[in-house]
């Protein structure tokens, strides 16, 4: 079979290239994505802008600004930001300690494997683990009481709270940070450090003027990803707190199960708000990643 370019050369005239049927090959995939990803999401988004009678409206979106729902978004945002920020900083510190060679090399492989495990160990079992550790009868709670005489729960700590949930989320946030940022740290060339040293820069100057600017897109981008990761998580929070902590995904979960908001369309608006927030966070991630890849090409 002659290739199209050959045919054109042969005849020496400007024929339109033969209609290609190659796109047919991705039809099954596109159909699947349409049915199980795009249409369901679109349905929710459209529902957020319609009332019970099927007419277009912004009323549902306005409804989001009632105090109880705003409070849900606020606590969700707070937990997501706190766990992303802490997870990001701690994960970065661990990754730097391992990659920059201050720790023995052999630590690296087990650390990466463990990070792979821990970043996927979210959901119901993770909640159990933290209840068994920091719950009222948890190992650490008891140890603190028996060995040090500290009553953890008298200090105001509660695993079923903002800090409790944040602490739990860190268990998958930190490893995720390590997994994503380690390749970026590996991308720092030894020659950059040496070139900076040759030009008279101190270690601090090298970090401030070279390392942080180079890593900034990756750092911000990973932060956005961690944020979205925490913001959409349902299972961990639900298994840990039941519905005592009304973060957005849990309110939505309860709404889907039993229409606790007494307005199905407010449920759509709630979901729409979630999509918007994670969309912004992920757009930042993708945009930042593209920027850092452009530099490091």
């Amino acid at each position: 079979m002659p290739s199209p370019s050959n045919t054109i050369q042969h005849k020496g005239t400007h024929h339109a290239p033969a209609r290609s049927w190659a796109w047919l090959g991705v039809v099954p995939f596109l159909l699947f994505a349409l049915l199980f990803l795009l249409l369901p999401t679109a349905n929710i988004i459209v529902g957020a802008f319609r009332n019970a009678g099927g007419e277009w409206t912004l009323a549902n979106i306005y409804q989001l600004f009632q105090p109880s729902i705003l409070a849900s978004y606020t606590i969700s945002l707070k937990i997501s930001i706190a766990s992303a920020l802490l997870g990001g900083v701690i994960g970065f510190a661990i990754a730097v300690a391992v990659v920059q060679g201050d720790l023995p090399r052999w630590i690296r492989a087990p650390l990466m494997t463990f990070s792979g495990v821990a970043s996927n160990f979210a959901g119901v079992p993770l909640a159990f683990a933290f209840l068994a550790t920091l719950g009222r009868l948890g190992l650490v709670t008891l140890l603190l009481r028996d060995w040090f005489g500290i009553n953890l729960y008298a200090t105001g700590f509660n695993i079923l709270s903002f800090w409790g949930l944040t602490l739990t989320y860190l268990f998958f946030q930190i490893p995720l940070m390590i997994l994503i940022i380690t390749p970026a740290l590996d991308g720092l060339k030894r020659e950059w450090r040496e070139a900076a040293a040759m030009l008279g820069a101190t270690t601090t100057q090298y970090w401030l003027k070279v390392v942080f600017p180079i890593l900034l897109p990756s750092l911000l981008g990973t932060f956005a990803l961690l944020f979205a990761n925490a913001f959409g998580a349902v299972a961990t929070a639900y298994a840990l707190t039941g519905s005592s902590l009304s973060i957005v995904p849990i309110v939505l979960f309860a709404q889907i199960r039993g229409d606790v908001l007494q307005d199905p369309h407010l449920g759509y608006a709630l979901a729409f708000g979630m999509v918007m927030i994670t969309l912004v966070a992920n757009s930042i991630y993708l945009w930042m990643r593209a920027r850092s890849e452009r530099w490091l090409k």
């Binding site: 199980f36 990803l37 369901p40 999401t41 990803l225 959409g232 995904p249 979630m274 999509v275 992920n282």
Partner: peptide, 12 residues
């Protein structure tokens, strides 16, 4: 990764 699972299943 962008659309939370709970929203997708809501759509289903």
């Amino acid at each position: 990764l962008v659309i939370p699972a709970i929203v997708i299943v809501f759509g289903y």
